[in-house]
Simulated scan of single mutants.
Amino acid sequence: MSAARTKRPRRERGIPLRAVLPNAVTALALCSGLTAIRFAILGNWELAVLMVLVAAVLDGVDGRIARWVRAESRFGAELDSLSDAISFGVAPALILYLWTLNTLGSFGWLVALLMALACALRLARFNASIDGEIQPHKSAGFLTGVPAPAGAVLALTPLFLWLWTGAEIVRTPIAIAVWTVFAASLMVSSIATFSPTVRLRRNIRFEFVVALVVFIAALVSAPWPTLAIVAIAYLATIPFSIRSYRRIRLQRAAAPAPASAPEPSGPSGA
């Protein structure tokens, strides 16, 4: 009989306590996306859009909290992707369908499905490459395609314009369908877009704070014109991001390759 002790199987550790806060924020973002669908069913378009925007804010906060408390984990990444798929794929698709795409019948539902599917495919591509060592866009400070929150905001831009002006021409179903397909294609595209991460120099931090205060004031006092202008301005930056990334890629291709270290000389073996 062996005297060696049998090792007990190690108990799997649960989520550490410091990871509760960022995951709770992600769960709140998921709840906001689901609540947006509820308000869309009730025909309350303002609150439906507001819930999507709340989800976008929470989505930008949870990752920073996780890095701050050093609680980044695969569980958090998967929960974040699920939240994004609901809040920025399913919710905007259903909002647009219930708002005007339903008048197109099965074609309108197909467009809504395309919006939700594009967001899910983008997130799946992101998760598949998150551990990849070679990510050309990320290494140059860019993103691949339009991120999910920005794609949702772009898709909802006609609704912003309608809430702002009340013009029924903005609500034309065919135009909304074409715009939705366009926004969905931007999410799954491989174009380089600017990263939302902002690094400020010391001498412009005060100006940034002033601009941020002005933006928040405009968002509170006139939300729909502000959101429409922000979405159009973001769309206008895409040609510049493509050109900037192309310039960086050409500079990297023209740079000389680092010289390899010389092999140490020694006696040759027979």
Rank of each mutant, 00 (worst) to 15 (best):
M51E: 07
S241W: 12
A261C: 13
V178E: 09
I65A: 02
D80W: 03
E263W: 02
V209K: 05
T197A: 04
P22N: 06
V209W: 11
I238R: 06
P223V: 14
A120D: 06
L121T: 01
P22G: 01
R249H: 07
T100F: 01
R243N: 14
G108Y: 09
L79Y: 14
I216F: 15
F88G: 03
P264M: 11
L212N: 10
R10G: 05
L58K: 11
A218S: 15
I238W: 08
A4F: 10
T226A: 13
R10I: 10
S87K: 05
G33Y: 02
Q251Y: 03
A183N: 10
G151P: 10
A3Q: 12
A85L: 13
C119V: 00
L123P: 01
E72L: 11
T144I: 08
G43I: 02
L79D: 08
L58I: 00
F208S: 13
A177W: 01
L98W: 14
K138D: 09
A48Q: 00
V178P: 07
A155P: 09
A27L: 12
V54A: 15
R199K: 15
K7N: 14
A228C: 02
M187Y: 13
P264G: 08
G145L: 03
R13G: 08
A3V: 15
A56I: 03
N102P: 08
G33F: 00
I95Q: 01
I130Y: 06
W179Y: 10
I95D: 09
E263Y: 10
A128G: 05
M187H: 05
V210R: 08
S268Q: 03
L98Y: 10
L235S: 00
V178L: 13
M51F: 13
N23M: 04
L123Y: 01
L17F: 07
G33T: 10
L34R: 07
R13P: 08
T35S: 09
V188I: 15
G269N: 07
V188D: 05
K138Y: 14
R122E: 04
